[in-house]
């Protein structure tokens, strides 16, 4: 019996889809059977980020309207057998789906997969309600900027009314040099304000954009910063306790020497 996790944020463009793709990939890397569901009907992206766009034949709406069996709608990933995607429809809209139907689909998938990661559309309307309906857990993605934190707060308020565990937080696109100059809200402040547990911090990394443009989730890379962060998040989801990555840049030989001798800068 698997576990369904919804990835949501309220605000658009903070990295829900990227996070979904990478958490899914990282979990699959660690040997779990994972199914990704894109619920952003009409504005699907997850297939693009996963590089599976060309393989779509059927989609979520076909499944919802019983035109095909659920299994037929799943697209296997190029890289892992244990990773599959249920893409959203591009031609319909969010009213095609209902929370009740979504719940049934997720329950059915839970029989075959360890993790079901649901990519939620932006906003708090029908699309959000659909995406949240079947989930056991929620991950809230936010950027270190005020408007995105405000929306995350609103979303957490709504998630608290749902029948699920308290949501966990991922801070995405952290720019460390801006925190240092005081131009960006730092992680502690965000966690204090939102008062939920932190699942991980992902640095703002150009590799993420490069990777999603070629349809290879960044989590597949061996040692980029974002990749490590996503893989750590996956391990935390599995229940391991993994310390937060330092966001500090390496600052030449002196800094390395200092670290070697245990002197904090």
């Amino acid at each position: 019996m698997g576990e369904a996790i919804v990835v949501t944020s309220g605000k658009g463009g903070v990295g829900k889809t990227t996070t979904t793709a990478n958490i899914g990939t990282a979990l699959a890397l660690l040997g779990n059977k994972v199914c990704l569901i894109d619920t952003d009907i009409g504005l699907r992206n997850l297939d693009v980020v996963m590089g599976l766009e060309n393989r779509i034949i059927f989609d979520l709406v076909d499944v919802v309207q019983n035109r095909i069996k659920l299994k037929q709608g799943l697209i296997p990933d190029k890289r892992f057998d244990c990773l599959q995607l249920l893409p959203a429809a591009q031609t319909s809209d969010k009213s095609e789906l209902s929370p009740k139907r979504m719940k049934e689909i997720v329950e059915e998938l839970k029989q075959d997969f360890d993790y079901i990661i649901i990519d939620c559309p932006a906003g708090i309307e029908q699309g959000f309600k659909n995406a949240v309906a079947g989930a056991d857990k929620a991950v809230v993605v936010t950027n270190p900027e005020k408007s995105s934190i405000r929306d995350a707060d609103r979303i957490i308020g709504l998630l608290e009314q749902e029948d699920m565990e308290p949501p966990k937080l991922i801070v995405n696109r952290m720019k460390n040099h801006m925190v240092k100059t005081g131009d960006m809200v730092d992680v502690d402040d965000i966690v204090n304000l939102l008062s939920i547990d932190l699942l991980g911090v992902v640095a703002d990394d150009e590799e993420v954009i490069k990777a999603s443009n070629i349809g290879e989730p960044v989590a597949l890379q061996p040692n980029s910063k974002a990749s490590l962060a996503y893989r750590n998040i996956a391990r935390r989801i599995l229940g391991e306790s993994v310390p937060l990555l330092s966001l500090e840049e390496e600052q030449g030989l002196l800094a390395k020497m200092k670290r070697f001798f245990g002197i904090r800068t």
């Binding site: 405000r150 707060d153 609103r154 308020g157 709504l158 608290e160 939102l194 008062s195």
Partner: peptide
């Protein structure tokens, strides 16, 4: 949290934050 409202009669003692 954002978007939530508490409205009561009498005095309010809130153990928590107002975001």
């Amino acid at each position: 949290r954002s978007g939530q409202v508490i409205n009561i009669e009498g005095d309010l003692l809130l153990i928590g934050d107002v975001n």
